[in-house]
Design a protein around this nucleic acid. Structure first.
Lengths: 333, 333
DNA sequence: CTGAAAGCGCTTACAG
DNA sequence: CTGAAAGCGCTTACAG
């Protein structure tokens, strides 16, 4: 435990220069003669000097911290997104202030406020369910660059990155229809913009076939494993002849797989099931899940890239990235 | 975008007091008369004052940021641990600087260094595989409170929180043995302290029964879904008569479940399988996984609690938390 | 090519 | 109960 960490002044004294010179050397300024710079660097090493970022940022009014708020880290989809975001941000020299809000709007306000106090250089937000669009204005009024990801917040001028939910579900549903199923259910999920978009894709696929949409075939539930499990049990009970369904997301599909297994039904032979997201786990589930691939980790990287761009160019026009969705057929459909 | 954010000086002017008074009021000092305090608060609100934490911390040499470094966020086990850590830390008024190192020791050094520059109030570290014990000394020399979690780094005086790996696997293996299996395999995982401990539990259980340990029954692989999948396929190929195995962790067990399913084998009837960790997913896998419960999220909270305690009392003696392991039987064994 | 000076926004003794 | 003053560790014009 070093009693007292050396400052720029100590280094200056050691190297026989002024602290201005030390500061310049430390940031690699070409203004300082090589010989002097070497002397300063040696002194810094000798004293075990550590840059005090806080002080530097206070003075320069800069920041290298970016806040990212996630709601449901227990869902691997978000964990993968976070990994992508973190990678991109760290590569760009930032540090991430991570907060988990478990869909709690109040907590979300609190952590956002805290990120503001920390003087975050930017904020990446996947809004908690029921988040008011007013947060957008609030954050913008703070002058902090923001990019919203996954769940959009309706029309507005904010940057956004998300998956092509509607088209993805359209593809999945169409695939099931093409495979000969006359009736296909929609399973899991229950509210929020993403749900609405996915359900829309489902409806459009039906429509394209001249099929009529029926509420009876949508089985709402939490977008979680348990939710998918319960929804599938309900489906099996109420619609015993239904043999195909597209799920709100992969995690719900896993729950459905579990429910199917319990009844001795084999996904892919007794029941056709499609997931959504293509989280890593789908490749080795039992059985491997057919799903819609939106490349979660890459999506996270893209979202972060947008924020980085916005920080660089605050005046740029609105940026939006929609991750293309493609069918990934494995064994469940 | 407010042109210029108000400072304590602006508030002081607005309220007709000195900035010292404002500072005191803002931190709720009882020194200031109620009436004055109210006036200051009103002024702060009126001006939209935002506390500049950076400045305050520079002056007071304090910090409310805690660094947490995770290696494999793609493994839900770690995601759950992180959720526990984050919850505890945020509840205590801290902010988390999260870094993901994907088992890259070099990157780990880099992020650790960065946390130091940020003047982190503490660090929670789950060391990347092959991390040298020297990091411990390094971090300690920085004077930053540290708690290591999940993977311990050998003997030393650092605080630590992890699961009872040895006993947990002992229980799982014994359960399989008690169920009548004469031979049980050990599947997945391949290096690191945790692996060693778990394998040790396996050996002890064998020993307690007078059974001899054979390398032939351990199937190494990455501690991931793919790893478990591959290990199970190897097992099935090389030891067709083996009908039971304990897995290195839940995620490997999922991969094994997938491999079993592919061969038309039903876990729990054709093959007995035990996982380890009890991540949320196990409750609704196909079929639901029997596992060893070490309460991941709570473990994360406990680990964070240790760091908090250490920050409060730097001189306290070594703190260690070992999450008790208990058998959780579902359908695979 | 390098130094002296001012200042970022706060906190903390110290007076009164 | 409140104010004046010093200072946290840096950066950034400005001189020279």
């Amino acid at each position: 435990m070093t009693s007292r960490t050396a400052t720029i002044i100590d280094v200056a004294a050691e190297a026989n220069v002024s602290k201005s010179t030390v500061s310049l050397v430390l940031k690699g300024s070409p203004l300082i003669k090589g010989e002097t710079a070497d002397r300063v660097k040696a002194a810094a090493i000798k004293l075990g000097y550590v840059y005090n970022r806080r002080a530097g940022e206070l003075r320069g009014n800069s920041s290298n911290a970016i806040g990212v708020v996630i709601n449901d880290l227990m869902n691997p989809f978000f964990a993968e997104i976070l990994v992508g975001i973190e990678r991109k941000l760290v590569d760009a020299g930032y540090v991430v202030l991570m907060a988990h809000t478990r869909e709690d709007v109040g907590l979300q306000d609190k952590v956002l406020q805290s990120m503001r106090e920390q003087n975050a250089a930017g904020i990446m937000l996947c809004p908690a369910l029921n988040t008011s669009r007013a947060v957008l204005k609030t954050i913008q009024s703070w002058g902090i660059p923001l990019t919203v990801f996954i769940r959009n917040l309706g029309p507005g001028s904010y940057d956004f990155a998300g998956g092509d939910s509607e088209h993805g579900v359209f593809l999945a549903t169409t695939h099931l229809l093409n495979s000969g199923y006359r009736e296909v259910g929609f399973l899991g999920g229950q509210k929020g913009v993403v749900f609405t978009q996915r359900l829309q894709g489902y409806k459009k696929a039906l429509q394209a076939r001249g099929l009529v949409f029926s509420e009876d075939l949508v089985f709402n539930a939490n977008p979680s494993r348990v939710g998918g499990y319960e929804a599938m049990n309900k489906l099996l009970l109420k619609r015993p002849r239904l043999k195909a369904a597209v799920c709100y997301n992969d995690v719900a599909a896993f729950g459905a797989l579990s429910a199917l297994g319990e009844k001795g039904l084999r996904a892919g032979v007794d029941f056709a099931l499609m997931g959504f997201d293509n989280i890593l786990d789908t490749a080795h589930s039992n059985p491997p899940l057919s799903t819609v691939d939106i490349h979660p980790t890459e999506l996270g990287e893209r979202a972060a890239a947008i924020l980085l761009q916005r920080i660089k160019d605050p005046g740029a026009k609105r940026m939006v990235y929609t991750a293309p969705a493609s069918l990934l057929l494995r064994q469940t459909a």
